[in-house]
Nucleic acid binder design. Structure first.
Lengths: 192, 192
DNA sequence: AAGCGTTTTTGACATACATCAAAGAAAAGG
DNA sequence: CCTTTTCTTTGATGTATGTCAAAAACGCTT
């Protein structure tokens, strides 16, 4: 009889909306996945460190950013049920040059790189990994194209349309740097 | 005895720098891959059509662009030995909203989507697909981050550093729209 | 070599947005 | 509940780059 931790259901649903997993994979997944909590402002990952985890966000909000000329540039903000990692570091064993920080108290499930690779030895899980990254790739692509040729207001409206949760919950400055404008400009845009 | 078309060697080398393929996969790959040539300015793919091919560029140069307010925005320019497709259309069976156009006379190898999927039933090929897209994802990511917070000159210098071939061979206007500046600005940057 | 279409350069001008600075509002913390 | 810190708003000013238009250079084709 297969025992799956209660914590795992959201994640398993997420995966099984792409591929059905057989009990062998489910069991491994259940064993490999660990739950962890972070307080607001705590870092899940820091620039310069190697990223050897992939995360699933159960609750809260996590911001990915990098530092350029002493300024934090938000890359993306993740909300509930999203899966994220610092892919270059994770897949190429290099040092990350980005930070992952909880912007609210957050609860995550993570799988270590080595365990993730073990899961990927199962073709059904490998197939999931491929579709996960394909979707992420396509989304990035669409986002970049849409943001590129818009003015500040257009960028904000676009982000609002595709990620209303972020607009509601994230700080002004974080949102602004995500779409490449200053927070002063964003404040004025919001005013009307 | 396995016969592999001469045309295929470049592509096979490219794949086998990631995974060694056994003869069964090699044979299928050889059967599925077709060579095609395009004249300068001919389209490999047009917006509104479904993209059901993935290409390997043997020689020449291919530009991916989309049209925004009647203007062509270059997304990227591919040079020899690169693999490309319109991923959203290819993987989600939607209509492409981008064009692929030869900017020089070009020779490509393509594999149809259905054959590509057949190849992906082999875990070793699936593994290649995953690493291919991972690398593309990471490269896009790095590029976007680097281009975002630079001024026009910085963007140009960055592109020159990562893709000198494009700078040498592509048209001014194509390069300019790729980094989100006007061709007049780029012309002035080049002047000094 | 001449001619024609395309691409690049140059110039004058307009403007969206950044920057800097300081006040005001909200949140955190004792 | 009051204090301190952090975040957001508002205002004044500067500048990089866009836009429009025309000239110059380039590269095919005959």
């Amino acid at each position: 009889m297969l025992f799956i931790s209660l914590n795992m259901h959201q994640l398993i649903n997420r995966i099984e909306s792409t591929v059905k997993l057989d009990s062998e994979v489910l069991e491994k997944l259940n064993n490999y996945a660990k739950v962890e909590t972070y307080l607001k402002n705590q870092h899940l990952l820091e620039s310069g460190k190697r990223c050897n985890k992939i995360w699933f966000l159960k609750s809260g909000m996590v911001r990915k950013y990098h530092v350029h000329n002493g300024k934090e540039i938000t890359i993306w903000i993740y909300t509930e049920k999203e899966i994220f990692t610092a892919l270059q570091s994770f897949s190429q064993n290099t040092c990350a040059n980005e930070y992952l920080q909880a912007c609210e108290n957050s609860e995550v499930i993570y799988i270590s790189k080595s365990n993730y690779e073990k899961l990927n030895q199962f073709p059904q899980f490998l197939f999931f990994s491929l579709s996960l990254i394909k979707r992420a790739f396509v989304n990035n692509d669409i986002r970049t194209r849409n943001l590129n040729k818009k003015d500040a207001k257009g960028k904000y409206e676009y982000l609002k349309a595709i990620a209303p949760e972020i607009i509601k919950r994230a700080k002004l400055g974080h949102i602004a740097s995500m779409i490449g404008i200053t927070q002063e400009t964003l404040s004025r845009i919001r005013k009307g």
